Simulated assay, not measured.
Amino acid sequence: MDTFGETHTPAALPVAELHLHIEGTLQPELIFALAERNGIELPYKDIDELRAKYEFTDLQSFLDLYYANMAVLQTEQDFADMTRAYLQRAADAGVRHAEIMMDPQAHVQRGVPLAICVNGVASALATSEQDFGVSTLLIAAFLRDMPEDNAIDVLNQLIAINAPIAGIGLDSAEVGNPPSKFERLFRRAKDAGLHRIAHAGEEGPASYITDSLDLLDVERIDHGIRCMEDEALVQRLVKEQVPLTVCPLSNVRLRAVDTLADHPLPAMLAAGLNVSVNSDDPAYFGGYVDDNFRELVGVHDLSVGERALLAANSVRSAFLDNARKEALLAQIHRWEIASED
Results as ranks from 00 to 15, higher is better:
residue 283 A to G: 08
residue 300 H to F: 10
residue 322 N to Y: 03
residue 296 L to V: 07
residue 308 A to P: 06
residue 325 K to D: 00
residue 269 L to R: 08
residue 272 G to D: 07
residue 324 R to S: 02
residue 288 Y to K: 09
residue 293 F to M: 09
residue 269 L to N: 13
residue 317 S to L: 05
residue 323 A to R: 10
residue 274 N to K: 15
residue 272 G to E: 06
residue 287 G to I: 10
residue 292 N to I: 08
residue 301 D to S: 13
residue 321 D to A: 00
residue 273 L to D: 13
residue 280 D to G: 12
residue 282 P to C: 11
residue 271 A to W: 09
residue 303 S to K: 02
residue 287 G to R: 08
residue 308 A to Q: 05
residue 272 G to I: 09
residue 293 F to P: 02
residue 279 S to K: 09
residue 289 V to E: 06
residue 329 L to G: 03
residue 329 L to F: 01
residue 305 G to C: 05
residue 292 N to C: 15
residue 283 A to P: 06
residue 293 F to N: 02
residue 303 S to L: 01
residue 271 A to N: 12
residue 304 V to E: 04
residue 305 G to H: 11
residue 319 F to N: 07
residue 273 L to C: 14
residue 277 V to F: 03
residue 280 D to N: 14
residue 304 V to T: 13
residue 294 R to F: 13
residue 297 V to I: 13
residue 307 R to Q: 15
residue 271 A to F: 07
residue 329 L to E: 01
residue 296 L to T: 08
residue 300 H to G: 10
residue 284 Y to T: 07
residue 292 N to R: 01
residue 317 S to W: 10
residue 277 V to P: 06
residue 293 F to T: 03
residue 323 A to K: 13
residue 312 A to I: 02
residue 289 V to M: 05
residue 304 V to F: 05
residue 267 A to G: 15
residue 286 G to T: 02
residue 289 V to D: 06
residue 310 L to M: 04
residue 281 D to H: 10
residue 311 A to K: 09
residue 287 G to W: 12
residue 276 S to M: 08
residue 301 D to I: 00
residue 323 A to M: 01
residue 291 D to G: 00
residue 294 R to K: 15
residue 284 Y to M: 09
residue 314 S to A: 14
residue 299 V to I: 14
residue 289 V to Q: 02
residue 276 S to P: 01
residue 299 V to P: 05
residue 320 L to A: 01
residue 267 A to P: 00
residue 285 F to C: 08
residue 274 N to R: 13
residue 325 K to R: 13
residue 286 G to S: 02
residue 306 E to D: 14
residue 312 A to K: 14
residue 321 D to F: 01
residue 283 A to R: 04
residue 303 S to Q: 03
residue 275 V to N: 02
residue 290 D to T: 02
residue 299 V to S: 05
residue 270 A to F: 00
residue 321 D to Y: 01
residue 304 V to Y: 07
residue 299 V to F: 04
